[in-house]
């Protein structure tokens, strides 16, 4: 369990799903203004719950977010309430990371303006899924395999350690296949903090602190994580 708590605001259709997934690896605190929702959360097995008036800043400050959490998730079912909440939280706590759920492109923009660090658009994947059902059944199957919570194959990011054998090499010089991994993309700090897919075709030079994103079986990912700690003496 991660020491930091994660606050989830809103225990509706989205909040519930998020809480369920996150509680597998994190300490989750549920906050909602509805008595009913909190009861439901309690029945679902969440012990840390708060029922407060989310429009009152003073009540939100009492939650003790600053000391206990660095991530807040806004998942209210009501779109306008969600935006309002993001603004209040940002005004109260400058440092925390605020993630918000959105259901439309217009709201995405508003949420970012309100101060959310990340907006998760849930309908966009839904429409991709419908399209895959209709046109690409095999891609659909692969998505189900890759993104299933119990999947043996997952995505992982690897920040490159200081003394790693990777430092100084270019992407094409590293044989990811030998590690049974697929390189998905990279954040090359030389070019900024944005993520670039490996399919872009540019042969990045790897440096300390650059981040690699790989796909692979969990065991292989773990092995690779240990491997990159070492310097270049080992045989690749």
């Amino acid at each position: 369990m991660n020491g930091n708590k994660i606050f989830i605001f809103g225990y509706g259709k989205n909040g519930r799903q998020i809480a369920k997934t996150l509680s597998m690896h994190h300490n989750v605190v549920i906050v909602d203004s509805e008595e009913q929702a909190i009861k439901k959360a309690y029945n679902d097995g969440f012990e840390h719950t708060h029922c407060i008036d989310l429009t009152e800043d003073s009540e939100i400050s009492k939650l003790g977010i600053v000391q206990r959490a660095k991530t807040l998730i806004c998942a209210m079912d009501d779109e306008s309430m969600n935006i309002f909440l993001v603004i209040s939280l940002r005004a109260l706590f400058e440092e925390v990371i605020i993630i918000s759920i959105s259901d439309s492109v217009e709201t995405n923009q508003k949420l970012l303006m309100a101060g959310a660090n990340k907006v998760i658009d849930i309908y966009d994947p839904g429409s991709t899924r419908i399209f895959n059902i209709l046109e690409k059944p095999y891609v659909l199957k692969v998505f189900d395999i890759l993104f299933h919570p119990d999947s043996k194959i997952s995505f992982n990011e690897f920040p490159i350690p200081e003394n790693s054998f990777l430092v100084g090499k270019t992407v094409s010089e590293v044989d990811f296949r030998a590690h049974h991994l697929i390189l998905v993309g990279i954040v090359d700090l030389e070019y900024g903090e944005h993520f670039t897919f490996a399919t872009h075709g540019f042969d990045h030079k790897l440096d300390y602190k650059d981040i690699l994103v790989c796909m692979g079986k969990d065991a292989d990912l773990e092995r690779f994580a240990r491997r990159i700690e070492h310097n270049g003496k080992e045989k690749e």
């Binding site: 994660i6 989205n14 799903q17 998020i18 809480a19 369920k20 997934t21 996150l22 597998m24 690896h25 994190h26 991530t71 998730i73 998942a75 993630i99 759920i101 990340k118 998760i120 849930i122 994947p125 839904g126 993104f147 919570p149 995505f155 992982n156 990011e157 998905v184 954040v187 993520f195 981040i211 994103v213």
Partner: peptide, 15 residues
Amino acid sequence: VAGMMAAVYIDQPVA
């Protein structure tokens, strides 16, 4: 997907 995506973002923002 909301839960899965939130979880990934918290642990691995780049992925």
